[in-house]
Every structure is written in C-alpha cells, then in structure tokens.
C-alpha cells in the first residue's frame, strides 16, 4: 500500500465517509424490516442479505480488499468454501430434512423376503 499520494488518500477518505453513511442507513433498514415481523424464513433471508451487503462494504473499502492481489482472494475463497461446509452441518443433521429427501413410502417387508428393503 506504499506510494499513495496525499490526493489519493483524500479520495479514499471521501469514500470512507460514503461507506459509513451507507452502513448507517443499512443498519436502520435492518431494524426497520425486523419491526415488520416477516415469517421466519423471510426475516432470516432479508436480515442476512442486508448484513452481507454491509459486510461486503466493510471488507471491500475499509479492509482494502478491492485493491488486493488475486492470491489473497484464492485463500479467502478456500476459507469461504469451508465456512459453507461448516454451516451445512445443521442442515445435514436435521433429520426431518433427511427424511424428506429419502424414500418416504416404504413397502412393508414380507416375512419370507430375503432381499433387504430399500430406503428407511
């Protein structure tokens, strides 16, 4: 990050203030939407969507991610992938979800059958 001139920095400073304003507005939006009391799935989707926008702004502008080289992105992408895997655990272990994706109607097993029944 060396070598930026004072004018460059002033330009950056203007951006920082704009991002700050955006973050403040989005915070108000988050709370306002919450007061509407959407059904849970919708509320979660909206809240996470707005939070993601705020997070992206912080990462891109305050953390200077926009000006970094590709190598860092690959590492962060790797991290993001494993983060998704980690978040997938609760979905995967939710038995109801699993029961829905597996055969629901299982034919009754006949007493003399030697082949195992499929599914659960």
């Amino acid at each position: 990050m060396g070598g930026s001139s004072a004018a460059d920095i002033q330009h950056h400073v203007k951006i920082y203030y704009r991002v700050f304003a955006a973050l403040a507005v989005l915070t108000v939006v988050t709370v306002a939407v919450a007061r509407i009391h959407l059904p849970l799935a919708g509320a979660v989707a909206v809240a996470l969507f707005v939070a993601s926008i705020k997070g992206t702004l912080v990462a891109c502008y305050f953390m200077h991610l926009l000006t970094e080289k590709a190598m860092l992105f690959w590492i962060l992408a790797l991290c993001a992938l494993f983060f998704i895997v980690l978040m997938a655990i609760p979905v995967l272990t939710d038995h109801e979800v699993m029961r829905r994706t597996v055969n629901v109607a299982v034919p009754p097993m006949k007493i003399h059958e030697t082949t195992p029944a499929t599914g659960h």
Partner: peptide
C-alpha cells in the same frame, strides 16, 4: 488437504444419519 475437510462424518456413521448423508 482439500478433501480432508469433507470426510469427517465417516467417524459418525453409527450416529443415526440418513443413508443420503
């Protein structure tokens, strides 16, 4: 190294996971 992050539940086959998982 990459794959090692997505195999962990083979230690948990007996915990009652569904067959898909």
């Amino acid at each position: 190294g990459f794959m090692s992050f997505i195999v962990w539940a083979h230690h948990m086959f007996m915990t009652g996971m569904g067959t898909t998982l």
